[in-house]
Design a binder for these strands. Structure first.
Lengths: 236, 236
DNA sequence: CCGTACACGTGACCC
DNA sequence: TGGGTCACGTGTACG
């Protein structure tokens, strides 16, 4: 433990720190409000300050690659900190008052471990945000807890990749089918109107005859005849 | 703190617990080996027991939905534990020796907080495994740290979904193109071989004549003729 | 009471 | 030295 200076509440050890009469109905924020000395921002904590548990309804538009809220998104970061007024029986027995070994340079907190703690909080918060974003992607398939989110994401990615590849293959197939299943070759295409009242078979026969009379030598033909439009394509 | 019994090393407070002479070249396992009393499994810890940092090369085949290694995958779980020989200056001042309030039932650890710790370890390990699995999915796009993995997964899912949907649309387009751009209707289909040496135009004319002689009344016709195979489909 | 799940502060480790 | 990341043990909340 080494140093208990900037703890916030240290609710353990049954030290009934936060008020006892009105307490048990409000389980949020065991640490009191306690305006931060020296950190002017971050008023009005939303309840249940842990950023993660709130993500179940968080919206995102797939983070624009860097605008994640510049630095402290307000929820959890630099939440404040309060000494538990003694912490009764601190981990170091018999520490005297008012001196506490005076670290080499500066006097009080914000030194060494304090910044470390803050950085870690920030990191945690960032990670929670990422979780929230990911959860927004898999909310249908995930139970909501961290582990489930991560697992669901892996499964989902796997499925999506499979579906994409299959679709891609199917796509190639279709394209090949349209193109006639040997590779692309030069081909000719005509398209014209026919008398809709007459038989489609007769129309096609007429068209083919016309082609033949034009001395067309076709080795492959594709045609589509519907609604009075005849489209025909051949290769020689 | 409340109870410091089963700590492993408690390296803080500059109590130089693990050997000092041969130490600094091997940064793994500050906690010693210490055979577990009562847990027969899990010998031979791989170095750097934290399961997460090793995942950068972990393979997976997309977890078969429940076979994640039944319970303790061996790396980290029930690593053992060792009392810090006193932990010098326990958090409860003046607790007498040899009695310590005797909790209701059992005597020593494995009570209350000990199981809690173990469960937490197990949970952490499971989560690390999930991370590893997810990382295997995004290893190409992720830097490797937790946050990056999660973010990359979200981005990847987003991209994959987009690609899949686009492919699906394109697919419908192609299908519609093949089917002829009015909706699917009941239609008839024939397919037969023709003499490859003769003209494709003649073959088609012959086929159409045959249809006509069968008294087929077609309002729309699609056909594909190539490599000696004539496929034809019509609706009445 | 037990299990699950989370956030926290912290020591260790690596650039 | 110092920021970044991790795993850890712990306190807390919920079912």
């Amino acid at each position: 433990m080494q140093m208990g200076s900037y703890y916030y509440a240290s609710f353990h050890d049954e030290a009934p720190f936060y008020l006892h009469g009105a307490a048990p109905a409000s389980p949020e924020l065991p640490f009191g409000l306690i305006a931060s000395p020296g950190e002017p921002s971050s008023v009005s904590q939303p309840p249940r300050a842990g950023a993660f548990q709130d993500y179940r309804g968080a919206g995102l538009e797939l983070l624009p690659a860097g605008a994640r809220a510049p630095h402290g998104s307000g929820t959890n970061v630099d939440r404040r900190v309060v000494d538990a007024l003694g912490r009764m029986g601190g981990d170091r027995e018999q520490r005297d008052e008012e001196e506490e070994r005076r670290q080499p340079a500066d006097t009080v907190e914000s030194s060494r471990g304090f910044r470390h703690m803050m950085r870690e909080r920030q990191r945690r918060e960032k990670l929670s945000q990422s979780y929230a974003d990911l959860y927004a992607m898999v909310s249908a398939r995930s139970k909501g807890d961290k582990n489930s989110v991560v697992q669901s994401a892996a499964i989902y990615i796997h499925e999506l990749k499979g579906a994409r590849d299959q679709l891609q293959r199917r796509n190639e197939e279709l394209k090949a089918k349209i193109l006639g299943h040997d590779a692309r070759q030069q081909c000719v295409e005509i398209q014209f109107e026919v008398d809709e009242t007459s038989s489609a078979i007769d129309s096609m026969i007429g068209a083919l005859r016309r082609l033949k009379s034009m001395d067309v030598r076709a080795r492959g033909i594709r045609s589509n005849m519907s609604d009075g439009r005849l489209w025909m394509q051949w290769r020689t």
